[in-house]
Amino acid sequence: MPLKPSTSHAKEKEAIALGEGLFWRRHGSMDFACASCHAADGQRIRLQPLVNAYNKEDITKTMTNWPTYRVSHNLVRNNEHRMWDCNWQMRLPDIEYGSDGAIALIAFLTKQAENGKLNIPSMKR
């Protein structure tokens, strides 16, 4: 099943645009934005490889692999949970599940992975 984010409604288009804006928004004690870690090829935090949201192949691999079995959690988690985790590492307060911000980020990332074929079940760290 390919990822086909709909853009027929103006609000859907807006969510993608705002999601990209939020992706670059720097805030918190570490001055981090999502883009600090996820907008260049070949980057690592310690030994963990970081997906580049602007590398089509890379982001497609990521977005088609969720929900996933997270070995480090012993549970199946969704992408939103992974973003919450990143958000926590950014030293930010909790982003609400299902909030406009969380949905906008997912809308943007899904758009970047457009046409990628869903590749589940999967397993990640």
């Binding site: 705002l18 928004r25 918190g28 930010l92 909790d94 982003i95 911000g101 906008a104």
Partner: peptide, 22 residues
């Protein structure tokens, strides 16, 4: 609009420090 979305998406509550979003 991004700022307004951030305000709506990070609710206040125990253990939260919303000043970090400013």
């Amino acid at each position: 609009k991004i700022d307004a979305m951030v305000t709506k998406s990070f609710p206040a509550g125990e253990g939260q420090d919303l000043s970090r979003l400013k």
